[in-house]
Amino acid sequence: MIATSPTTQPTPPAVAQPRRWSTSRLGDGQFATLLTLPVIVVLGLVVAYPTLYSLWMSFQRIDLIFGTTEAVGFANYRQALTSPEVWHSVRVTLLYTALVTIFAVAIAVGGALLLNERFRGRGFLMALVILPWAVSLYATAVVWKYIYSPEWGLLNAVLQQRLGLSDGPILFLSERGAVPALAVAHAWQIAPLGMYFVLATLQVIPEDLYKAAKVDRLGAFGRFRHVVLPYIKTPLSIVMVLITVEAARVFDIIFFMTNGGPGDASTTLTWDIYRQSFVNRNLGYGAAVAWILVVLTTIITTVYFLLLFRNREKRPDKAAVGEAT
């Protein structure tokens, strides 16, 4: 830690002058408070205040046209929790989130294992794979809408016209296909960050462990199971939780690609909140449904936080980093 003993103080040039106040007189805790004060004020105004406000809203019936509110107690929550629409969108959210996580983790781990190999063009590919991450979610939605398009889509051009795998154009965004198709698009965008993170972890695995695995005659799978997995287990769970939260928050992709449809096949909680709040202008009810989503993401985030903090010293990936610094 930073030394705070008086010996590190500069010798005052003029003892007669009263010493000016300086941050050096503060302890760690006081200086930290000073530094965190601005962020507490700003986040208090733009996050905490609206959050509490939305809690209040969820107990009101709000009429935007007349600008009136009426306290209705738990009516909004009762309505939400007994609404088949809300439960449907909870199910869609869970399915969508699970699919995005599975797809993205598979891409991230596969890509990282590949980029950890030695081959020509590796540097180029490594620089290139970040590209989807830089593409915003709404642009990702536009990109994939045109990939899936039955009229001029790339996938139909290849699958149907070139390979003849289908008689007519395939409707990817159909009632059954919409959620998986959206999940693929989202996974495409979100996977690169996980890939970089897993790759960084793979690169701290000591070379000796691979050599030992060779001596023990372990195959590719054995190497993955006994050498790689212990290292990437915790980082991978962290990536998974992050992706899960991102997927549960999805909005842009639904807005651009399906509008929650066909019917309500891809109506996630976020889309339900959007529709209730800003299409039906039922802000109190929308706020109540939003709180259901917040509870869901808060649970996931708490798991994430505990993962980061728990067993820190036992993690091989951190132990290696700790020695280096």
Binding site: I2, G29, A32, V47, M57, A287, A290, V294, T297, T298
Partner: peptide, 30 residues
């Protein structure tokens, strides 16, 4: 710096990061 409330502060930051934008925008809209 090591200070009291560091873990709580980090947790608050992670929580704000995971807050669904659509839930944020409802009170802001009003």
């Amino acid at each position: 710096l090591a200070f009291r409330g560091r873990a709580a502060m980090l947790f608050a930051i992670i929580l704000s990061r995971s807050y669904p934008p659509i839930a944020v925008v409802v009170p802001f809209f009003y």
